[in-house]
Design a protein around this nucleic acid. Structure first.
Length: 271
DNA sequence: GACCAGGACCATT
DNA sequence: AATGGTCATGGT
């Protein structure tokens, strides 16, 4: 077990705001899942974060995973100034962007299209149990690459099965693909990620935001589209592209962080 | 039985 | 550039 003091961190909001799909909330309000490949249970005890597991990640890895060393005051400055966003800050202060595994983000958000969080979590468990027997961690690209489309359909992927299989094959056979995305600018990274089958503008932004720390990414899904139209366009049915541009203009390099409060606030009915 | 979910893709206009 | 139909699956 490791335990260390954490400031300005909302574990529950962070793990329940649709960023990762492999954590489950236990009856005692702790969370079980994988962090940097290690199976862990996480819980808050006052100002302390407690991490348990057979093999443990380092404190530094946990701090990096949850982005704990980022100063959120620039994000809060936007949320406080804006009267319509303030409720989300008051409710979810300490919600942070997770710096998850790039491949896991790429794969999981291919699965997310026209899907819902609960079902994505189910597919995550199916893939992990079937393709990573023993550990039940999320399978590597190579494990999915040598898997037949039919097998993936049987795990509940539906029409997304060939998208994930082909993407896994490409990533597994071209080492350096993910590194190149990380090193690229946001615009170039979008172009690279969107070239994979099953990835359009929205999924690309999720992958870059959660897997590659491109904080200017602003994923516009149905929830964000609804809440942005309501809060900033007087309910007019403006396009996703206009919403993206408005977010970039308004929030710039921190748009992704603001988006996380918008999304979680909208889904919880407080915006 | 229609509608929805962290949409993408293709064909038309 | 914008619109419309289609794509699996499970929940409401």
């Amino acid at each position: 077990m490791i335990r260390f003091s954490v400031l300005d961190f909302n574990l529950q909001a962070t793990l329940e705001s649709g960023q990762v799909f492999g954590f489950e909330r236990l009856p005692d309000a702790s969370f079980r899942g994988f962090l940097r490949g290690k199976k862990v249970t996480l819980r808050r005890e006052g100002e302390t974060l407690v991490v348990q597991g057979r093999t443990l990640p380092s404190e530094r890895q946990v701090r990096e995973y949850f982005d704990l060393d980022r100063d959120l005051s620039p994000v809060y400055a936007h949320l406080e100034t804006d009267a319509v966003l303030k409720p989300a800050l008051e409710k979810f202060r300490g919600l942070r962007l997770i710096q998850q595994d790039p491949w896991e983000a790429l794969a999981c958000f291919i699965l997310s299209s026209n899907n819902n969080v609960k079902r994505i979590q189910g597919i995550w468990r199916n893939l992990s149990a079937k393709l990573s027997p023993g550990t039940n961690a999320f399978p590597a690209a190579s494990q999915i690459a040598r898997c037949h489309e039919r097998t993936l359909r049987e795990l509940g992927l539906g029409y997304r099965a060939p998208f994930l299989q082909r993407t896994a094959l490409f990533v597994a056979s071209s080492p350096g693909t993910l590194d190149a995305i990380r090193e690229a600018s946001y615009e170039e990274a979008v172009a690279r990620v969107i070239a994979f089958p099953g990835i359009g503008p929205k999924v690309a932004d999720c992958v870059l935001l959660y897997g590659f720390q491109k904080v200017e990414a602003f994923p516009v899904d149905v929830w964000i589209l609804r809440v942005m139209r309501k809060l900033y366009f007087r309910g007019r049915r403006v396009s996703e592209e206009r919403v993206r541009r408005a977010a970039a203009r308004r929030w710039g390099a921190l748009a992704g962080y603001v988006q996380q409060y918008l999304f979680h606030g909208a889904r919880n009915g407080i915006l």
